Computed example of a mutant assay.
Amino acid sequence: MAIDSMLIAELSDPFCLTAGEADTLLDGHPWHRFAILGDSVAEGLTDPVDGYHPLAFPDRVRVELARHRPGLAHRNLGVRNLRAAEVLATQLGPALAFRPDLALVICGANDAMRPGYEARADAVDATLAALIRPLQAAGARVVTVSLFVMPAYPSMPAWLGPAFSRRMSMLGRRTTALAETLGTIHVDLATHPAIGTGDALTGADGLHGNGRSHAIAAAEMIRRLSREIQGA
């Protein structure tokens, strides 16, 4: 059975791609080498949801890009639990060696989720910039993401503190501001309208996005890439 025939819920979800939309949006894209850097979101940690595509959004985007570029080379360097400095130390070198012309950078959440992020926020921003600038200098268009921020995370351990959502919102705002400064292709999900629908976007751990949230994120990134392709 073709996978599209299994996406009953996704194809009727107002925040997701319609049938054939990705093909239209990415037609003629210029990218040949796609690198993914970051933490668990980049790695693709998610829980499946019936009726939605099984791939996490970074790999879903990679598949859609490859439809128009069958020889697309890709490398996903994402590793769960890493803070931004660890991503910089372990992934930037391999990413540059891969010579991407498109790079997705997703990290900072493991810094922001912990108490005391407010005092470390400038350092996290500087680390993100130290990841992004060399990729840009090497010729890659860099995509950054401000992740979905839930109003509350009731499943999170008490030690993370009651201000967990506020810290994640702060990371989202700062990532968006940094993206504007550095000129990245930015996907802002932090205040996406899907958050207010009452439908679950998190998986069993109460933190990482489920299949629906990844489908929405893929749609937003593909739409944003389309605007880049069109020069908008």
Rank of each mutant, 00 (worst) to 15 (best):
S155H: 15
S155F: 09
M156Y: 00
M156R: 11
P157A: 07
A158Y: 05
A158G: 04
W159I: 10
W159A: 15
W159N: 11
W159D: 15
W159C: 07
W159R: 14
L160D: 03
L160W: 11
L160E: 14
G161R: 02
G161S: 07
P162C: 06
P162Q: 00
P162E: 10
F164Y: 12
S165T: 10
S165E: 07
R166S: 13
R166M: 11
S169F: 00
S169W: 05
M170R: 08
L171T: 09
G172E: 03
R173I: 06
R174C: 04
R174T: 04
R174Y: 06
R174S: 05
T176E: 03
T176R: 01
A177Y: 00
A177E: 03
L178C: 06
L178E: 02
L178N: 03
A179G: 14
A179S: 15
E180N: 10
T181V: 12
L182T: 05
L182G: 00
L182D: 01
G183H: 05
G183L: 04
G183R: 06
T184L: 08
T184F: 10
I185R: 10
H186Y: 03
V187R: 02
V187N: 02
D188S: 13
D188R: 11
L189G: 03
L189N: 09
A190M: 08
A190F: 02
T191E: 15
P193C: 08
P193L: 07
I195M: 12
I195C: 11
G196Q: 09
G196K: 00
D199M: 14
D199T: 12
A200C: 10
A200R: 12
A200G: 13
L201R: 12
L201H: 08
T202C: 02
A204G: 13
A204E: 13
A204V: 13
A204T: 14
A204D: 12
D205S: 10
D205F: 06
